[in-house]
Design a protein around this nucleic acid. Sequence first.
DNA 1: GTGTTCGCGCTCAACTTCGAGCAAATGAGC
DNA 2: GCTCATTTGCTCGAAGTTGAGCGCGAACAC
Lengths: 254, 254
Amino acid sequence: MGIDRVELIREELKTKKVVYVHHLADKLYVSRSTIRRDLAQLEQEGLVRRFYGGAKLIEHPSNEIPFFMRKERNRAAKEIIAELATDLVTDNQFVALDTTSTVAYLPRYLKDKENLKILTNSAQLALDCLDQLHSARIFCTGGWMSSFSRGFIGETTRLRISEYRTDILFFSARSISLEEGVTDVNEEDAYLKQQMIRGTRKSVFLCDHTKFDEISYRLVCPVQDLDYLVTDQRPSDKWLHHLESAGVEVIFPE
Amino acid sequence: MGIDRVELIREELKTKKVVYVHHLADKLYVSRSTIRRDLAQLEQEGLVRRFYGGAKLIEHPSNEIPFFMRKERNRAAKEIIAELATDLVTDNQFVALDTTSTVAYLPRYLKDKENLKILTNSAQLALDCLDQLHSARIFCTGGWMSSFSRGFIGETTRLRISEYRTDILFFSARSISLEEGVTDVNEEDAYLKQQMIRGTRKSVFLCDHTKFDEISYRLVCPVQDLDYLVTDQRPSDKWLHHLESAGVEVIFPE
DNA sequence: GTGTTCGCGCTCAACTTCGAGCAAATGAGC
DNA sequence: GCTCATTTGCTCGAAGTTGAGCGCGAACAC
């Protein structure tokens, strides 16, 4: 990859803050495909946030970016899932939430529920709930902070989770497969999810369509442990049948 | 979606508080449909409330405001104090931080310290440290969230604090007086501060000039419990003498 | 109440951009 | 020269964005 060109784009970003694919392509005498690839690389580095037609400089780089990017990926799907999922919540319930980016969309849709209690190990989510759910009581586990999930991990966290019995748990993970069930890439997070599942009456797995038929290396739980699976598109008949026979209620639009 | 345009609408909202579809459409040279779509997006984000013909900025949609206002009050003084205070920190130390708005200024000035450990009961501060102090390990107490301090309170919090021995504690409070020492208005916070003081080797009280000679109803600690007091102006001789005879080292500019 | 005006949301068509896949071009090492 | 890996440009189907048109309902004057 032409080091020069990417370097020039960096320079451009320093002064301009916002760059456009078509403009850079004209200026640097390369195709738009090439510019798009360059911008994808800069996004990967956490330097810019891309938008339709160009990219914008991220002013204050921080640990927040990887999480922010996960949150933005498949945004539409996650909104749909959040809206469907919150129908499962009733007033006065004790709700457990994990640190995933999908779950981060829930608070807004929980606004009209009264008198909830929330248990989470995500610092960011705890603050979001505090700001949006005025009638809720929010309990946060504490523990050592993970820059990956921007939440708490470790033995303290696990202990705190084990001390509570929640009515309903909303969680997500990287992947789900017929053979292995729910799997993820992060050892610590998987461990905490297991603890959360043990401590709740109903487990709801939030799962956009891209997560099906993928396998990550760390087992979280078998499909049988789930009570509900909420997704954004009708799963295949094979999956519907598999989930039904495992006793999982599947929720999807229409 | 053209990020630019939405960004411009945000700018407009900062000054105008109310925007109109027809006005924005004319100003930004796009159709009214497009503006309506943008406003719908901003409404989704919870930034505005739409009305027939336009949208209105939601002034302060969250619990964040009281804290935000405390943080902005005497900003200059707090910056000075933060810079002076962080000179007391050396690499590898275990630092305790409370939930006050003055302490919230510290992380930026701790950037050049290596290998710190942080203990705090503030969710916001924990996230700030995570983003700014890449080499630090951050422990957060957890507990029930207080909308007043945007941090954790309660028995769990107190217990977690009591489990750690820190090298240096930075904290603040509403007021300090010759007769009563450090006092505050919040029962729970005062209680946690006491616990933090018990668990640390050095206590540093951050105290802008407005806090002197005020009394709030809840006692936090006598002056003798402090090791350092950092302030933004030279205190009166009476105070300097009082603090010196109580064994408190006073730090102020010049 | 009635009528008028105007904004809203929806849909559709035109247009643009995106990203994956593939083949050509480039260039380093032998 | 040749080989291999990387980079680039092109194509094409999918997805995103925009503005115009239309029916509906809200706001307002009377």
